[in-house]
Design a binder for these strands. Sequence first.
DNA 1: GATTTTATGTCAGTCATGTTGACTTATCTA
DNA 2: TAGATAAGTCAACATGACTGACATAAAATC
Lengths: 168, 168
Amino acid sequence: MTDIKSGPNPLFLRTDEIMQAIELLFFAYRDFTGEPDELLAQYGFGRAHHRVIHFVGRHPGMTVSELLSILQITKQSLSRVLSQLVAEGFIKQTPGEIDRRQRLLELTEKGLELDEKLFNVQRQRIVKAYKESGAEAVAGFRSVLINMMEESDRPRFAKKTHPPSPRR
Amino acid sequence: MTDIKSGPNPLFLRTDEIMQAIELLFFAYRDFTGEPDELLAQYGFGRAHHRVIHFVGRHPGMTVSELLSILQITKQSLSRVLSQLVAEGFIKQTPGEIDRRQRLLELTEKGLELDEKLFNVQRQRIVKAYKESGAEAVAGFRSVLINMMEESDRPRFAKKTHPPSPRR
DNA sequence: GATTTTATGTCAGTCATGTTGACTTATCTA
DNA sequence: TAGATAAGTCAACATGACTGACATAAAATC
């Protein structure tokens, strides 16, 4: 039968522990994204815009391709939100100097402002959770999440080594 | 100005630590939901169906109202996925004995099977992440996520008090 | 120099999942 | 009996994904 082993699990691999992890992620993520969503709605934006603003803010000068590979969506999906953000003056595109096919992305002043507003909303929730849990717990939180994601994205979170490489 | 304080933060509240938390959640959640999504697609279902199956599986006999308040979506949104799951024989509805207006929800055999398949997919990822991180890290992970969600949902994760009711 | 590949963008159509608003039916409660 | 509640339905709409086909400019290669 397709039974769930709940037998010889030394410590923390019981069925209900796993179940709890699933719900933990569901509720925490739901609430974590809830506040920014409200703020974004005031601009007529959604979560997709947030992700674009976030990653462009973090990696100014990144190309459209790089953004696509981080977000793992199609260029048609990205196009809608990105062109909206460009049209409304939150993101600026400049042709690459070396490769003039590329459009290097960066936030405008207006984009930086929204980025910061969004950041501050999320910052409060994280600071609260971190403070209430303590430094040791935070290390555990980081470790579990890093081990939960695909390996290809883990280098981004290396302790000393900064994220992959600025631009290209 | 709307500057982000990065001044007197004793331990772990630096801007880039917060930023890392944001990305950690994004990447881990994206990959955590990716595998179940693929499995669900084989049934013509989506993530919304998964959530319904999960919570009905965890709380057999729950009412539609209870499900709505957990999922925090409108009944019209729920209706679409729920009636699909009922029509295709994954969920069974029986009128409440005390209050005959209620439709008590539970998984059918077919529903239980899918529930288990979905669980097993997620279980593997979680077990791997937990094992690679260790018991202490897991405690930290739980603590941070609990403190990140709204207080109203925290009782669900109380230490000793089992979640509402196990059974099944 | 001509050809192919790459980076980006666009048009068109579809799907999944959320929303609001209005309304119905059955049943419980005051 | 009147009103509130649990559940469901119809309709219209928004967002953010998807596929497929095609266009343009620039770089890379033959």
